[in-house]
Protein backbone atom coordinates (compact mmCIF):
# COMPACT_ATOMS: atom_id res chain seq x y z
CA UNK A 1 0.00 0.00 0.00
CA UNK A 2 2.67 2.46 1.07
CA UNK A 3 4.75 1.46 -1.92
CA UNK A 4 1.88 2.18 -4.26
CA UNK A 5 1.22 5.56 -2.72
CA UNK A 6 4.87 6.43 -2.94
CA UNK A 7 5.00 5.34 -6.54
CA UNK A 8 1.91 7.37 -7.37
CA UNK A 9 3.32 10.35 -5.52
CA UNK A 10 6.61 10.14 -7.38
CA UNK A 11 4.82 9.95 -10.73
CA UNK A 12 2.78 13.02 -9.85
CA UNK A 13 5.92 14.82 -8.72
CA UNK A 14 7.82 13.92 -11.86
CA UNK A 15 4.98 15.33 -13.92
CA UNK A 16 4.76 18.55 -11.95
CA UNK A 17 8.49 19.15 -12.35
CA UNK A 18 7.80 20.69 -15.74
CA UNK A 19 5.78 23.37 -14.04
CA UNK A 20 8.55 25.80 -13.19
CA UNK A 21 10.12 25.88 -16.61
CA UNK A 22 9.37 29.60 -17.18
CA UNK A 23 11.47 31.01 -14.31
CA UNK A 24 15.08 29.92 -14.27
CA UNK A 25 16.31 28.53 -10.99
CA UNK A 26 19.97 28.81 -10.05
CA UNK A 27 21.25 26.76 -7.14
CA UNK A 28 24.00 28.54 -5.24
CA UNK A 29 25.77 26.46 -2.56
CA UNK A 30 27.83 28.87 -0.48
CA UNK A 31 30.61 28.00 1.97
CA UNK A 32 29.68 30.10 4.99
CA UNK A 33 27.05 32.65 5.93
CA UNK A 34 29.17 33.64 8.92
CA UNK A 35 31.99 35.11 6.82
CA UNK A 36 31.80 38.87 6.61
CA UNK A 37 33.51 39.28 3.24
CA UNK A 38 31.37 36.54 1.76
CA UNK A 39 28.25 38.39 2.86
CA UNK A 40 29.05 41.17 0.34
CA UNK A 41 29.44 38.55 -2.34
CA UNK A 42 25.96 37.29 -1.43
CA UNK A 43 24.73 40.85 -1.68
CA UNK A 44 26.01 40.95 -5.24
CA UNK A 45 24.16 37.74 -6.01
CA UNK A 46 20.96 39.02 -4.39
CA UNK A 47 21.33 42.27 -6.28
CA UNK A 48 21.34 40.43 -9.57
CA UNK A 49 18.44 38.30 -8.39
CA UNK A 50 16.36 41.36 -7.54
CA UNK A 51 17.03 43.04 -10.85
CA UNK A 52 15.93 40.03 -12.92
CA UNK A 53 12.39 38.78 -12.57
CA UNK A 54 12.87 35.65 -14.68
CA UNK A 55 15.45 34.07 -12.38
CA UNK A 56 15.42 32.81 -8.83
CA UNK A 57 18.75 32.22 -7.10
CA UNK A 58 18.63 29.96 -4.05
CA UNK A 59 21.60 30.00 -1.67
CA UNK A 60 22.55 27.38 0.91
CA UNK A 61 25.09 27.51 3.72
CA UNK A 62 27.67 24.71 3.97
CA UNK A 63 29.03 25.97 7.28
CA UNK A 64 32.57 25.55 5.84
CA UNK A 65 31.94 21.80 5.69
CA UNK A 66 32.87 20.33 2.27
CA UNK A 67 30.63 17.31 2.73
CA UNK A 68 27.66 19.54 3.57
CA UNK A 69 28.38 21.42 0.35
CA UNK A 70 28.23 18.15 -1.62
CA UNK A 71 24.83 17.46 -0.06
CA UNK A 72 23.65 20.92 -1.06
CA UNK A 73 24.81 20.32 -4.63
CA UNK A 74 22.96 16.97 -4.67
CA UNK A 75 19.82 18.63 -3.42
CA UNK A 76 19.92 21.33 -6.08
CA UNK A 77 20.52 18.75 -8.81
CA UNK A 78 17.60 16.70 -7.50
CA UNK A 79 15.46 19.81 -7.53
CA UNK A 80 16.35 20.25 -11.21
CA UNK A 81 18.01 23.67 -11.16
CA UNK A 82 19.03 25.28 -14.46
CA UNK A 83 22.53 26.24 -13.35
CA UNK A 84 24.84 25.92 -10.36
CA UNK A 85 26.72 28.89 -8.93
CA UNK A 86 29.26 27.69 -6.39
CA UNK A 87 31.72 29.34 -4.07
CA UNK A 88 33.57 26.15 -3.02
CA UNK A 89 34.60 25.50 0.59
CA UNK A 90 38.01 24.45 -0.73
CA UNK A 91 39.35 23.82 -4.19
CA UNK A 92 39.57 20.03 -3.77
CA UNK A 93 35.79 19.79 -3.55
CA UNK A 94 35.31 21.22 -7.05
CA UNK A 95 36.12 17.90 -8.74
CA UNK A 96 33.21 15.90 -7.32
CA UNK A 97 30.89 18.89 -7.69
CA UNK A 98 31.85 19.18 -11.36
CA UNK A 99 31.33 15.46 -11.87
CA UNK A 100 27.84 15.62 -10.38
CA UNK A 101 26.95 18.70 -12.43
CA UNK A 102 28.30 17.18 -15.65
CA UNK A 103 26.41 13.97 -15.07
CA UNK A 104 23.18 15.89 -14.58
CA UNK A 105 24.06 18.14 -17.51
CA UNK A 106 23.78 21.33 -15.47
CA UNK A 107 26.10 24.26 -16.22
CA UNK A 108 28.50 25.07 -13.39
CA UNK A 109 30.02 28.42 -12.45
CA UNK A 110 32.73 28.59 -9.80
CA UNK A 111 33.24 31.90 -8.04
CA UNK A 112 36.10 33.34 -5.98
CA UNK A 113 38.23 30.24 -5.32
CA UNK A 114 40.09 29.08 -8.43
CA UNK A 115 40.21 25.28 -8.85
CA UNK A 116 43.27 23.57 -10.32
CA UNK A 117 43.52 22.98 -14.06
CA UNK A 118 42.27 19.41 -14.11
CA UNK A 119 39.14 20.38 -12.18
CA UNK A 120 38.61 23.48 -14.35
CA UNK A 121 38.21 21.22 -17.40
CA UNK A 122 34.75 20.23 -16.20
CA UNK A 123 33.72 23.70 -15.04
CA UNK A 124 31.86 25.95 -17.46
CA UNK A 125 33.05 29.30 -16.16
CA UNK A 126 35.08 30.92 -13.40
CA UNK A 127 34.57 34.36 -11.92
CA UNK A 128 37.15 35.79 -9.56
CA UNK A 129 40.19 37.91 -9.06
CA UNK A 130 43.75 36.80 -9.68
CA UNK A 131 44.99 36.35 -6.15
CA UNK A 132 48.65 36.86 -6.96
CA UNK A 133 47.84 40.39 -8.09
CA UNK A 134 46.55 41.22 -4.60
CA UNK A 135 49.78 39.96 -3.05
CA UNK A 136 51.88 42.00 -5.44
CA UNK A 137 49.89 45.22 -4.98
CA UNK A 138 49.97 44.77 -1.21
CA UNK A 139 53.72 44.14 -1.08
CA UNK A 140 54.48 47.07 -3.37
CA UNK A 141 52.58 49.38 -1.03
CA UNK A 142 54.76 48.13 1.83
CA UNK A 143 57.93 48.75 -0.18
CA UNK A 144 56.73 52.30 -0.84
CA UNK A 145 55.97 52.96 2.82
CA UNK A 146 59.31 51.56 4.00
CA UNK A 147 61.08 53.85 1.55
CA UNK A 148 64.46 52.12 1.82
CA UNK A 149 64.34 51.50 5.57
CA UNK A 150 64.96 48.02 6.99
CA UNK A 151 61.77 45.96 6.89
CA UNK A 152 61.29 42.89 9.11
CA UNK A 153 58.17 41.22 7.91
CA UNK A 154 55.69 38.82 9.42
CA UNK A 155 53.19 37.25 7.02
CA UNK A 156 49.81 36.09 8.31
CA UNK A 157 48.39 33.47 6.01
CA UNK A 158 44.85 32.25 5.44
CA UNK A 159 43.90 28.59 5.71
CA UNK A 160 46.82 26.71 4.19
CA UNK A 161 45.98 25.29 0.81
CA UNK A 162 43.41 27.90 -0.16
CA UNK A 163 44.28 29.31 -3.53
CA UNK A 164 44.09 32.85 -2.14
CA UNK A 165 46.51 31.96 0.67
CA UNK A 166 49.05 30.39 -1.69
CA UNK A 167 48.89 33.06 -4.39
CA UNK A 168 48.70 36.15 -2.18
CA UNK A 169 51.68 34.93 -0.18
CA UNK A 170 53.49 34.12 -3.41
CA UNK A 171 52.79 37.64 -4.71
CA UNK A 172 54.14 39.11 -1.46
CA UNK A 173 57.35 37.10 -1.68
CA UNK A 174 57.83 37.83 -5.36
CA UNK A 175 58.06 41.55 -4.56
CA UNK A 176 59.92 41.34 -1.24
CA UNK A 177 62.65 39.10 -2.68
CA UNK A 178 63.76 41.94 -4.95
CA UNK A 179 64.71 44.19 -2.03
CA UNK A 180 67.80 43.62 0.12
CA UNK A 181 66.44 45.83 2.93
CA UNK A 182 63.45 43.55 3.40
CA UNK A 183 63.52 40.31 5.35
CA UNK A 184 60.68 37.90 6.08
CA UNK A 185 61.05 36.96 9.75
CA UNK A 186 57.96 34.85 10.29
CA UNK A 187 55.11 33.18 8.42
CA UNK A 188 52.12 31.87 10.35
CA UNK A 189 48.69 30.50 9.57
CA UNK A 190 45.99 32.82 10.90
CA UNK A 191 43.20 30.87 9.15
CA UNK A 192 41.57 34.12 7.86
CA UNK A 193 40.51 34.67 11.45
CA UNK A 194 40.76 37.84 13.52
CA UNK A 195 40.97 36.12 16.90
CA UNK A 196 43.53 33.60 15.73
CA UNK A 197 45.68 36.35 14.19
CA UNK A 198 45.47 38.42 17.35
CA UNK A 199 46.87 35.53 19.33
CA UNK A 200 49.61 34.79 16.82
CA UNK A 201 50.76 38.40 16.62
CA UNK A 202 50.80 38.74 20.40
CA UNK A 203 53.22 35.82 20.49
CA UNK A 204 55.19 37.01 17.48
CA UNK A 205 55.79 40.48 18.87
CA UNK A 206 57.20 38.88 22.02
CA UNK A 207 59.42 36.46 20.15
CA UNK A 208 60.57 38.90 17.45
CA UNK A 209 60.50 42.46 18.73
CA UNK A 210 62.28 43.55 15.55
CA UNK A 211 59.13 43.01 13.44
CA UNK A 212 57.97 46.31 11.93
CA UNK A 213 55.74 45.12 9.10
CA UNK A 214 52.77 42.76 9.24
CA UNK A 215 51.36 41.58 5.95
CA UNK A 216 48.09 39.69 6.24
CA UNK A 217 46.36 37.61 3.57
CA UNK A 218 43.07 39.25 4.52
CA UNK A 219 41.73 42.21 6.48
CA UNK A 220 40.26 40.25 9.36
CA UNK A 221 43.75 38.98 10.24
CA UNK A 222 45.23 42.45 9.69
CA UNK A 223 42.72 43.81 12.21
CA UNK A 224 43.68 41.02 14.61
CA UNK A 225 47.33 42.05 14.20
CA UNK A 226 46.46 45.66 14.82
CA UNK A 227 44.57 44.82 18.00
CA UNK A 228 47.52 42.76 19.22
CA UNK A 229 49.89 45.64 18.48
CA UNK A 230 47.69 48.03 20.46
CA UNK A 231 47.64 45.59 23.36
CA UNK A 232 51.44 45.42 23.23
CA UNK A 233 51.55 49.22 23.51
CA UNK A 234 52.87 49.83 19.99
CA UNK A 235 51.76 52.93 18.13
CA UNK A 236 50.78 53.39 14.53
CA UNK A 237 54.26 54.67 13.70
CA UNK A 238 55.97 51.52 14.98
CA UNK A 239 54.25 49.09 12.66
CA UNK A 240 53.15 48.91 9.07
CA UNK A 241 50.05 46.70 8.83
CA UNK A 242 48.40 45.76 5.59
CA UNK A 243 45.52 43.52 4.62
CA UNK A 244 43.45 42.44 1.63
CA UNK A 245 39.68 42.79 0.95
CA UNK A 246 38.93 46.38 2.02
CA UNK A 247 36.02 45.28 4.17
CA UNK A 248 34.05 48.10 5.82
CA UNK A 249 35.60 47.17 9.17
CA UNK A 250 39.08 47.45 7.70
CA UNK A 251 38.30 50.76 6.04
CA UNK A 252 37.33 52.14 9.44
CA UNK A 253 40.77 51.19 10.73
CA UNK A 254 42.61 52.68 7.73
CA UNK A 255 44.84 55.48 9.00
CA UNK A 256 44.40 54.46 12.63
CA UNK A 257 46.66 51.44 12.67
CA UNK A 258 45.98 49.84 9.33
CA UNK A 259 48.13 51.33 6.57
CA UNK A 260 46.79 49.81 3.40
CA UNK A 261 44.42 47.21 2.08
CA UNK A 262 43.55 45.83 -1.33
CA UNK A 263 40.02 45.92 -2.65
CA UNK A 264 38.66 42.72 -4.09
CA UNK A 265 35.18 43.42 -5.20
CA UNK A 266 33.08 40.86 -3.36
CA UNK A 267 29.93 42.37 -4.75
CA UNK A 268 31.44 42.42 -8.23
CA UNK A 269 32.28 38.74 -8.02
CA UNK A 270 28.85 37.84 -6.69
CA UNK A 271 27.05 39.91 -9.29
CA UNK A 272 29.39 38.75 -12.07
CA UNK A 273 29.02 35.11 -11.05
CA UNK A 274 25.25 35.38 -10.98
CA UNK A 275 25.23 37.02 -14.39
CA UNK A 276 27.37 34.26 -15.94
CA UNK A 277 25.25 31.53 -14.34
CA UNK A 278 22.12 33.27 -15.63
CA UNK A 279 23.51 33.40 -19.16
CA UNK A 280 24.51 29.74 -19.03
CA UNK A 281 21.09 28.79 -17.71
CA UNK A 282 19.57 30.54 -20.71
CA UNK A 283 21.89 28.60 -22.99
CA UNK A 284 24.06 31.56 -23.99
CA UNK A 285 27.81 31.28 -24.57
CA UNK A 286 30.12 32.83 -21.99
CA UNK A 287 33.84 33.35 -21.53
CA UNK A 288 35.49 30.68 -19.41
CA UNK A 289 37.73 32.88 -17.25
CA UNK A 290 36.26 36.14 -15.97
CA UNK A 291 38.64 38.38 -14.01
CA UNK A 292 37.68 41.16 -11.67
CA UNK A 293 40.53 43.54 -10.86
CA UNK A 294 42.10 44.38 -7.49
CA UNK A 295 42.68 47.96 -6.36
CA UNK A 296 45.04 49.36 -3.69
CA UNK A 297 43.25 51.34 -0.97
CA UNK A 298 45.10 53.88 1.19
CA UNK A 299 43.75 56.26 3.82
CA UNK A 300 43.01 58.88 1.15
CA UNK A 301 40.55 56.57 -0.62
CA UNK A 302 38.81 55.52 2.59
CA UNK A 303 35.61 57.48 2.01
CA UNK A 304 35.37 56.51 -1.63
CA UNK A 305 35.49 52.80 -0.80
CA UNK A 306 33.26 53.06 2.24
CA UNK A 307 30.73 54.54 -0.13
CA UNK A 308 30.81 51.33 -2.22
CA UNK A 309 29.22 49.47 0.64
CA UNK A 310 26.32 51.90 1.06
Amino acid sequence: MIKKTLLAASVVCAASNFAFADTLVIGAPMPSFADKWMSYLFEGINDFNDKHSDVEIKMTDANEDPSKMLNDVDNFIDAGVNALLVVPTDIAIVKPIAKKANRANIPLVIVNRLPDESAMKNVDAYVGSESIQAGIIQAESVVGMLDGKQGNIAILMGVLGHEAQIKRTEGNKQVFSQYSNIKIVAEQEGRWDRAKALQIVEDLLQAHPEINVIVANNDEMAIGALLAARKAGLTDADLIITGVDATPDALEYLGSGLDSTVFQSAKGQGYGGAEIAYKLAKGEKVQKMNWINFELVLEEQKVEYLYKYQ
Binding site: D65, T89, A92, K95
Partner: peptide, 16 residues
Protein backbone atom coordinates in the same frame (compact mmCIF):
# COMPACT_ATOMS: atom_id res chain seq x y z
CA UNK B 1 33.55 6.80 2.67
CA UNK B 2 33.51 10.58 2.80
CA UNK B 3 36.93 10.71 1.14
CA UNK B 4 35.68 8.59 -1.71
CA UNK B 5 32.57 10.76 -2.04
CA UNK B 6 34.50 14.03 -1.98
CA UNK B 7 37.47 12.80 -4.09
CA UNK B 8 39.77 14.17 -1.40
CA UNK B 9 40.82 13.80 2.20
CA UNK B 10 40.57 16.99 4.21
CA UNK B 11 41.51 17.79 7.81
CA UNK B 12 38.37 19.93 8.07
CA UNK B 13 36.11 16.95 7.35
CA UNK B 14 33.72 15.67 9.96
CA UNK B 15 33.46 18.97 11.77
CA UNK B 16 30.74 18.56 14.45
Amino acid sequence: MLTSRAYAGNPTFGNM
